[in-house]
Computed example of a mutant assay.
Amino acid sequence: MTEIKLTFIGTGDAFGSGGRLSTCFYVKAPDSGFLIDCGASSIPGLKMNGIDIKDIGTILITHFHGDHFGGLPFFLLEAAVCRCEKPITVVSPPGCKEKVTQLLSLLYPGTEVLEKLNISFLEYQPFETIVTGGLKVQAYPVIHSEAAFPHGLRIHIADKIISYSGDTEWTDNLIPLSADADLFICECNFFNLQVRGHMNYQSLKLWLPGLTCKKIILTHFDNEMLNNIDQIDAECAFDGMKVDI
């Protein structure tokens, strides 16, 4: 059986509530390492956890909000400066290469980054499966800001399944997304507050008994959720948390 370890690099919301970093999860298997989302604070988060970017070959992006993909330009800049020769694959909704190129031009004008890397951009469509780097990734549309092209991801690696909701309010697509997954990471931004495009715990707990995932961990907390975390029955992630899958 394959040994897979996941580190929660960042488990906060877009505003860094509670001093938490923005969304980024690092998954390490014997022959590969990859990121699920790469929020704006991902580079310092990876370094605080002793993770070398040269050990990361694939980056999966759920949607185009800064707390989920805003760290990608900095990741690629460091890879270019370090002369990383390892192939890098970015898997995302359509348009990632153009967005990253624009960001690099704004943040570091005149600096060649993508030209120095062995990088590929793969784009998925709703319910499409992408196969790359030992991963099989299926994208499920979810309910969040439409302009950000939001998706949840179901990731097959070796004999394991990791599912991640991305940012979303409840949608029935989360049922097949998480079905029988070894780990389902689910955003739960709020405790009581109802905000379109985000989950709250009072809504989620009504659906928990019907989910068939083997393990669920909640993430992406705002201050209201953090202030009520002792009332949460499900396991809650924190920055630096490590999980064997």
Rank of each mutant, 00 (worst) to 15 (best):
T7F: 14
S17T: 11
A234S: 11
L226R: 11
C236S: 11
H151L: 02
L46Y: 10
P87E: 05
F184V: 08
K54Y: 02
Q194E: 05
L77M: 12
N49I: 15
A14K: 11
P44M: 15
Y26L: 10
H156R: 03
P87Q: 01
R20G: 10
D172P: 00
T62R: 02
D244H: 09
H156N: 07
L174T: 01
D52L: 08
T129Q: 09
I157F: 01
D182I: 07
M1W: 04
A29D: 06
G66H: 05
C38F: 09
A139M: 10
G16C: 07
I161P: 01
I51K: 15
L183H: 09
G95K: 12
G33C: 09
F184L: 08
M225A: 07
F238I: 11
P126A: 12
L206H: 01
L114E: 12
L76P: 07
G39C: 14
H63Q: 13
M199S: 01
P93K: 07
G95W: 13
L174K: 08
F221L: 06
D167R: 01
F34D: 00
L206Y: 03
K99F: 05
L206Q: 11
V243F: 05
P93F: 07
G50K: 15
L114F: 08
L107M: 15
V195R: 03
L153S: 02
G70N: 08
P109Q: 11
I61T: 03
P73N: 01
E78P: 09
L35D: 10
A29W: 00
F190L: 00
L206A: 06
R154V: 03
R83M: 10
R20D: 06
S22L: 12
K5P: 03
Q202V: 04
I185G: 03
Y108W: 10
M48Q: 15
L226S: 13
K54T: 10
P94F: 09
F25Y: 10
I175K: 12
I155N: 05
K86H: 04
E78I: 14
P150N: 04
G50Q: 14
L6Y: 05
E187N: 10
A148Y: 05
F121L: 06
T89M: 01
P150A: 07
